[in-house]
Structure formats: C-alpha cells, structure tokens
Nucleic acid binder design. Sequence first.
DNA 1: AATGAATGAGTTTTCATTCAT
DNA 2: TATGAATGAAAACTCATTCAT
Lengths: 221, 221, 221, 221
Amino acid sequence: MDSPIIAKAPVRTASLGKREQTKVQNREIILDAARKVFGELGFGATTVRDIIRATPLASGTFYNYFKSKEEVFQAIQDEMALTLRPRLRDERLKAKTVEEFISSTFRSFMEFVAEDHVSVRTIRHTADTTRVRIHTPEIVAGFEELREDIEKAIAQGLFPPVDADYLMASIVGVAFEVADRMMTREHRDPAAAAAFATALFVGGIRMLPHADHPAAKTGTA
Amino acid sequence: MDSPIIAKAPVRTASLGKREQTKVQNREIILDAARKVFGELGFGATTVRDIIRATPLASGTFYNYFKSKEEVFQAIQDEMALTLRPRLRDERLKAKTVEEFISSTFRSFMEFVAEDHVSVRTIRHTADTTRVRIHTPEIVAGFEELREDIEKAIAQGLFPPVDADYLMASIVGVAFEVADRMMTREHRDPAAAAAFATALFVGGIRMLPHADHPAAKTGTA
Amino acid sequence: MDSPIIAKAPVRTASLGKREQTKVQNREIILDAARKVFGELGFGATTVRDIIRATPLASGTFYNYFKSKEEVFQAIQDEMALTLRPRLRDERLKAKTVEEFISSTFRSFMEFVAEDHVSVRTIRHTADTTRVRIHTPEIVAGFEELREDIEKAIAQGLFPPVDADYLMASIVGVAFEVADRMMTREHRDPAAAAAFATALFVGGIRMLPHADHPAAKTGTA
Amino acid sequence: MDSPIIAKAPVRTASLGKREQTKVQNREIILDAARKVFGELGFGATTVRDIIRATPLASGTFYNYFKSKEEVFQAIQDEMALTLRPRLRDERLKAKTVEEFISSTFRSFMEFVAEDHVSVRTIRHTADTTRVRIHTPEIVAGFEELREDIEKAIAQGLFPPVDADYLMASIVGVAFEVADRMMTREHRDPAAAAAFATALFVGGIRMLPHADHPAAKTGTA
DNA sequence: AATGAATGAGTTTTCATTCAT
DNA sequence: TATGAATGAAAACTCATTCAT
C-alpha cells in the first residue's frame, strides 16, 4: 500500500485522477470533522455519527475510508506525529547545552500549540468548567522519546545524572499546563511561555537530586 | 464493624438508622465500582451499565443515587478535592520560605495520591494507551487557590515577582505528571517524588523572568 | 369492609378517631393532587409517581388508599357524579316546558364549571395550544341520562319527535365548548353563557327534522 | 394505480425514485399503524413500541420519521386539518345566506368524517368508556377561522349581531359530538347529520341574544 | 399505618453497520 | 464509489410495586 520504491512516480500528488482526488479530499474532510468533534466532545463521547454529521458526506461513505472512530483518531495522531515529533527530536539532538535542549523543546511545543493544534489542548465541556485532556498513544510515544533523549544527554554528560523519568514527566506537565494557560490569554505569546518554562528547568535541573542508577528508575508500566 | 457492646447501643455508625446506613453503603458501592470501571475502560468508554454491572445492585438503584456517569465522576473528584484542598492550603499558609511553600504542596499531594486515591490518576484505556485527564470544577478551583496563594506570597516578598499564573500551571503540571509516573513504579516513594519536584522549583524559581505587573498577567477564562 | 348496618354509628363523621381522621385526610390529599396532575398532564400521561410527587406522602402510602391511577380517577369521577348529575336530573324532571328543560340543564352545568371544576374542562398542555378533553365513563353515563330524559320528554309531548341521540350530542357539545370559551374570558358569566346556549336550542328545536321513529335512531355502540 | 402505458414511463407516482417511494410508504405505514393503535388503546395509553409493533418496521426506523408519539399524532391531525380547513373556508365564503353558511360547514364536515377519517373521531379507551379529544394547534386555528368568518358575516349583515365566539364554540361542539354519534350508528348518513345540525342553528340563531359590541365579546386566550 | 429505597421489567432512544439504489 | 434509510442490538431511563424498617 505504501512505500513504492520507484513505480508510479512519487511526484504526482498534484496531478491525481478525478477519482483519486475526491478520495483524498473526502479523507481530509472526515479528518477535519473528526478533529473538530473530538475537540468539542472528547474522544470517548464522540460517536461515528457525530463525525459524519460534521461532514457533508453520507454515513456509508465514512466506512469507505475508516473502520471506526478509533481508526480516525489514529490517523489524526499519525499526522501530528509526522509534524511535531520529528521537529522536537531534531532540535534536541542538535542541542549542545542544557539550555538549548530545554528551550528548543518548549519553543517548538508552544509554537505548535499556538498554531491552533487543538488536539493537544484541554477540552472545555459545554456549560461547566470541567476540562478534559486526552493523551493519545502517539503523544505518549513522544513522551518516551523525550525520556530516551534525556537519558542519552545524561550518558553524554550534558545533563547531571537525574531521574530521567521524572524529568520527562515534569517537562511534559509544564509544557501542557503552561500551553493551556497561554491559550486562555488575550495576547498569546509562545516565546514568552517557552522562556518561562525554560528558565524554570534550566534553573531547577541543577538542584535536582542525583539518581544513583538513573536507568534503573525507569518505570515499566 | 458494628458490634455494639450493649444491646440497642446508641453508638452505631454515626448513629444512623439501618436505612440510612444502607444508603450510605450503596452510594459507596457505586462509587467504588465506578472508580474501578473508569480505571479499566476509561471514562469515555464507560457506560452506566458497566458501572451497574460492577455492582450487586439493580439498574434502577443507580438512578436513585446519580443521574449519569458524569455525576458519579463529579462525586469521585469532589470527594478528593474536599480532602486534599484544605490540607494543601493550610500547609501553604504556614510556609515561611519558598522551600516550605513548595515542598509542603508536593509532599501532601504525593502522599495523597499514593494512598490509593485512584481518582487523581490519569485514566487509562485498556486496549490502547490513550489516557484521559479530567479536571472538574472543584479541582480547577483548587488550582485557583494555589495561584492566589502564590500571588499573596509575591506580595509578601516571599516569592520573586514572577508570572503567578504560569507558575501555578507549572506546579500543577509537574504534580500530576510526576505523581502519575510514581504510581507506575514498583516501589512507590511519595517522599522521593516530592523531593524531586521541590528541588526543581526551588532551583528554578530564582531563574524565572520577573513579571512587570504580576497581577496583570493573570489570565481570565 | 363498608356498609355497617348499624354498628359504630354513622353520624360521627365530625368526631372520628385520630386514625380515621388521617385516613380521610390522606385520601383527600391524594385526590386533590390527582385532580391537579390530571389537569396538567392529562390522564394518559399521568403516572402514579406524578400523583405521589404532588403529595407530601410517601409512595407506599398511596397504595394504602388506591390500587392504581385508574382507581383514583374513578374516585374523582364518582365525586362529580354525586354532585352534578343528580342536580341536573332533578331540575330536568321538574321542567314543564322545553325552555325550562334546556335552560336548567345549561344553567346548572355552567355554574358547576365556573366553580372551578377542572375535571370537565379542556386541558391545555404546556407550551403549545394543544388541548385535551377527557370524557370519563361517569360523564358519558350523564350523557345517556340526558338522552333518556329527552326521550321521556318526547313521549310526554313536551318535545317534538326529534332525534334524541343527536339532540343530546348537540347539547353536550355546546355545553362543553361554550363553557370552555367562558372560562377563557376575563369576566366569567355562567348565566350569560347558559342564556346563549338556551336561546340557541329553544329557537332551534322547533326547526329540527322530525324523526319517524325516534327510539329507533338511538345508537347502540 | 400506476400502469404506465409505455415502458419506462415518466408518469410514475409523482415521479419519485424507489428510495423516495419507500420513504413515503413507510411514513404512511407508521401513520396508519398509529391511527389504528390510538383508536384501540387511546392516545395516552399508547406507547411508541405499540405503534412500532403494529408495523413491519424496525424500532429504529420509527425515529427516522417521528421523534415521539406526540409528533405522530400531530401529523395525523395536521393531515386532516390541511384537507378540511380550506374546503370549509371556501364554501363559507361563497355563502349568501345564513342557511348556506351553516349547512355548507356541517355538510363538508360530516362528509369528511364519514370518509373513514378516524382522526377526527374521539379516541376510545378499550377497557373503559373514557374518551379523549385532542385539539391540535392546527385544528384550533381552524376554529379561529370560523370565528373570523362569523364576524365578517355579522359585519356584512348576513348574521345578526350575536356573540361570535360562543357561536363558533357551539358550532364546533355540535359538529364534533354529532359526528361522533353518527359514526356509532350502523347506517352512517352524513347528509342527515348535517341537516340536523343545520336546522338547529338556522332556527336557533334568530333567538340568540344580541351582543352589544360583538367584537368586544371575542375572548382572548 | 407510613415510609421511601430497591427492584427489574418495560419503554425510549441511540448508534454502528449494512445494503439496495 | 456515494448515498442514506433500515436494521436491531444495546444503552439510557422510568415506573409500578414491594417490603424491611
């Protein structure tokens, strides 16, 4: 299905037959609708019907593209994974100092969120203050990547030998919560939010207790 | 559990009649079942039926106590908030230094979570790794309390004039995420988790950018 | 259970034991609540729960007095039957002329309705114009009585030999509809309403086609 | 009913596709079932399930057409009102005399009812004799039309200056009740029923008290 | 006799999925 | 391939009635 080595020229995305074009379009229509509905109702509460309703398409058409809402969700996450995660990873790998490592992580993240990427944000339910946040497998995988990178940085002597798991969790927690506050402000300033979070960690990491065997601390779930 | 020493003893469970006792019990049976099922299936995927099935009660009985799974969830969260919030607040108000302020917050929180308070933890989906975090109004109110206390601490010169809103968000994010990681570990050590988080903030706060008008930064929904 | 021939003195209604008093009171409380609820929701839509809810009593208590909403309804109708029907009948039997026959019927009816006897009136449902009228067996029995009296009046030569069944239906229809209009007016005037209806029939009866065999026309349903 | 002379004839049932045809058919199937069940059980006692059971359709299908039994009832009544009201109005407007006005009204009504229009008839309860009459907004609007036409007729000098509101109510009451009696008879004779009602009013109107300010008497909900 | 929570059968309603057009 | 109504299983919810207190 994918990875054609040569055949059928990869550079034709713009010149698809009418059939293929509609197919791609409909897929995108469904994904957009799903993003919107997941954002409004939360994943659990969303039904396939809800997604279809947010679409000009017929219910039967949905099943030509996806088998279930789970599959749609997967597709949305994959899309995100294809943009945010590599971006974060590349910059972290280039980092020469703690400061670069931390600040690149937060800057990329805050910018991504500010670009209206709803999927990362807290969802406010209708008419009350209840907020829901969904961490999808893809996002969780991104967490693991971060932890691995921290462990590498410790191994390279870039970071002190702290608890990589807790540090990762702290970065994630701060990233999501501060991003969330940022989005409630009138003037959204991803750079300022990133600067705040970066300063906190750059200052704090030095004070963290040293883990005796950092790797051993890694949880297994 | 009851065992009245003298027959007809007035010292029964808070002196409730049998009827009242069963009522309280049933409520707790439902809440326990719900905690279990939410934990297994995730909030979104859980149906009222699932909760009832995890109970020896009849379906109609559920509706004598709660109108929906949302209401059950509320009750679970509120129960938590009502225990934790006052405890946190009291200790923060007693704090004389930044370190006391921060460490008391994290210590209380981590201990609370470690005492099997499932409700604080992120809810996991069985089949996949999707995690859902729900912040009820009660919990959100706890966040606001924290921000107010930070603002007071700034006004008193205890804290430097940082962005209280972002600091609150950071503390909340670290508390929940680190607690979550702590609970996945074989050896749960709330003290260590609290120490980690405390060190991060005690070291980090000094580096935070000073807000020009700290109060003005406060976001409004 | 009832009809004690002598024992326990029938003339004590005012001096009942405490027990008996509450019993009578509760019965009346339920009947009042039922009248109200039937009036608001209509008989079909009303549930026993609805009636109980409109009462300070517990649900179990209801069943000490009535087996079902049908039985309550019956009781309400019986009460009405005991006041309106005999009143109507007595006056009709005394009638010496068509005019007396007709006018006494309408006068009694309009007065009865004006005394807030909801059970006879059209029910307006919440928030729309839909109106519901319920003709209970008791009321229908009253219709039959009227037809019989008309037939007697024809036999006695008081009325011309018209179709008694249709005449009864016409009187009933006019009585209910005009009463209903009367009750929507600011100034409720039962005498005027009765005068209108009476004039219509006194004038109209003379013009009615003569039935060849008046009795034969009687429907059997 | 169809019998297209030439194959592929465009003269199919209002030229609907097969899909549209089934849709119209199913709607009619539901309405017919509802008419039947309402007639047997009475409106109040009828459940949506009862209607579905009287149908070859699946339960979900019902909800593709109607939201509740109330909506089905509305549809039945509206269907009736939409046929009957214009017919009645047209004939009344052509009326040159009191007699024409009255007789056209009753004749049209009785004929309509006799054509098996179950919906006009009172709904009877099986077990008892309780009868329910429901006036939907559409039907009530028909009543208002009648009153307006009477007022116009008074203004034109066709009718004496009587209470138009009460006269309308009287006509309505007689129409429904006499129609109801007519339908219980073995030999249904709409002409005779209409003649009876017409004679009553033609004779009676002359005797009605004159309203001082006919317009002022008009009730307002 | 009054109470009111528990019960579970039955009703209402939704929803994923299929399939004829 | 798109359509959208039909399906029926399952979820949500209600209610009459019982029965321990």
